[in-house]
Design a protein around this nucleic acid. Structure first.
Length: 411
RNA sequence: CGGGGUGUGGCGCAGUUGGCUAGCGCGCCGCGUUUGGGACGCGGAGGUCGGAGGUUCGAGUCCUCUCACCCCGACCA
């Protein structure tokens, strides 16, 4: 892709109506566009990041056997009535709308009910289980107050997976397998070292804990206590002596941190399956409850978390795995042919390149390379002769390489 | 939903106690000079001041209503 063809532009001005660093930088760099409070559009560069995050999450969900599907945003009232989650007194952040004939509809804020309802057409026997299904889809929540830029919007992109097990033991296995996939996801996203599996409240209908994946960051809304050695944490909300004993943690080993909830997994027991009439028949011909688990990751939130956590004074810094492009190519002086050649060779080698082919001064290109947070910058210049310059976004070292050496480094 | 604040070209802002053709920076268009860390000169385009109503000879400046946005709190992935 050439910068001259990209319709977005960078801006030197910080948007006045954004306080959150993630939104300020993402808007300045042209990754997102604010529609209204808590509602953001993803522009070409932002979409590429989002797709990269989705790809990683999707690969890991597939690796545990998750089957991807796509549920609807429009929701019928009746299935939510069966679990008592329709009333505004119970769930106060519904967006609701109506058909022309006045039938009430909900705008999906989560998908336990519709997924269970859909599966009930197909899952009848012990032979149909266990099962994981997931989707990556927008969620709509009518929050009283949107804040923190892309970290907490009214419309956001979420991956939600649901597991269906025949027994508690089978559920526990599925749950742990998904937890391991979560660890791999955060490692691949580059925030594994600062993301902790965190024991949290399991909800009013279960004695069990749920597990949040909390990423350490000052912008976070949660307070957690971290056991660095065990790589575990406890949410402040449940950090009682009794719970610490249950979790095998000692208070003196814990350090208090601010964090953002990047993902969360929790046991649902058979609350939804029972309520919606999803059962299976066992080998003896006896009807049994299905034990469910739920596994969420805020895809768009993760994008904001990455922006927050890695950005420096010059702008965004993307981990290579999610960066919209791997290389920001800059031509200085009369070197168009050589730059075209470099651009083509890199692309043929499978390296994603954003070529800043604008007729502007070098300083502006460098500043934009930094603001956009592309992992590597390659410079073609008369001054360099046959060599090219390679610089990582995060470092100061500049290497001078010929094209073959460069390809070896990047491909 | 409680408290606080802000709406003026695409973005960031200034506009004394109401007063004449509403300014500045960034960005944009044209010409020229520049070209390794956001260049410079000259010339342009673009706003009716969030919206509605009112007071006044006169409203971006005052009043009423209203919409939107931001921050703190409560609530949430």
């Amino acid at each position: 892709m050439r910068v001259s063809q990209l319709f977005t532009k960078t801006s030197k001005n910080i948007p006045a109506d954004e306080q959150a660093k993630n939104a300020q930088l993402l808007i300045r760099a042209g990754y997102i566009h604010k529609e209204m409070a808590g509602v953001y559009a993803y522009l070409p560069l932002g979409l590429r990041v989002l797709e990269n995050i989705k790809r990683i999450v999707r690969e890991e969900m597939n690796s545990v056997g998750g089957q991807e599907l796509l549920m609807t945003t429009l929701q019928p009232r009746d299935i939510w009535g069966k679990t008592n989650r329709w009333d505004d007194e119970v769930v106060d952040n519904w967006f609701k709308t109506r058909l022309k004939n006045d039938t009430e509809l909900g705008v999906g804020l989560t998908h336990e009910e519709p997924i269970v309802d859909a599966l009930s057409s197909y899952v009848d026997s012990y032979k149909d289980l266990p099962l994981y299904v997931y989707q990556i889809a927008p969620k709509f929540r009518n929050e009283l107050r949107a804040k923190s830029g892309i970290l907490r919007g009214r419309e956001f992109l979420m991956k939600d997976m649901y597991s269906f097990a025949r027994t508690q033991a089978e559920h526990d296995e599925l749950y742990e397998k998904a937890a391991e996939a979560y660890t791999r996801i955060f490692d691949r996203l580059g925030i594994g070292d600062r993301t902790y599996r965190t024991a949290a409240d399991g909800g009013y209908f279960t004695e069990r804990f749920s597990d949040e994946y909390q990423t350490i960051s000052e912008v976070g809304e949660d307070t957690i206590y971290v056991d660095e050695a065990k790589k575990l944490a406890v949410n402040k909300e449940i950090c009682t002596d009794e719970n610490l004993v249950k979790l095998g943690l000692k208070r003196e080993d814990l350090v208090e941190k601010r964090s953002v909830e990047s993902g969360n997994i929790f046991p649902l027991e058979s609350k939804y399956s029972d309520a919606l009439g999803l059962y299976y028949t066992d080998e003896e011909g006896v009807r049994q409850s299905i034990i469910m688990g739920c596994y969420g990751i805020g895809i768009s939130r993760v994008m904001g978390v990455l922006a927050e956590v890695f950005a420096d004074g010059k702008g965004l810094v993307w981990p290579e795995a999610v960066a919209p492009f791997k290389v920001y190519l800059v031509n200085i002086g009369d070197v168009v042919n050589k730059t075209t050649d470099t651009y083509d060779r890199l692309q043929k080698a499978g390296v994603e390149v954003l070529w800043d082919d604008r007729e502007t001064r070098p300083g502006e290109k460098f500043a934009d390379a930094d603001l956009l947070g592309i992992p590597y910058r390659v410079v073609v210049s008369e001054r360099l002769g046959d060599k090219l310059e390679l610089k990582a976004r995060t470092g100061d070292k500049i290497e001078e390489l010929n094209l073959d050496e460069l390809l070896k480094h990047l491909a």
